[in-house]
Amino acid sequence: MTPFDLRTAFLEDLTAVAPDLDAESIGDSDHLQDDLGLDSMDFLNLVGALHRRFGLPIPEADYPRLATPAKALAYLTEMLGLSG
């Protein structure tokens, strides 16, 4: 999976839990909760979707590492062992 694919997959899951967000307008450093307005339920649903897609456990302690798309992509890249 290329970084581009990963980003696409992440944005797909993000816009699925928040259908009123437009994937085109989401910035990599947008804070999911403060900037994009996800509430704790939306965020948990996103974690659930990423869990189902990638099979990662994503414990609560790691939630801060998903705070923005950029952070989340770095986290997923690391956890999936995609690059070093």
Partner: peptide, 17 residues
Amino acid sequence: LAATNAALVPDRRLLMG
């Protein structure tokens, strides 16, 4: 909550809410 959620997959976790 932390102890309970630690053992659960995300779709089964609880929120404080």
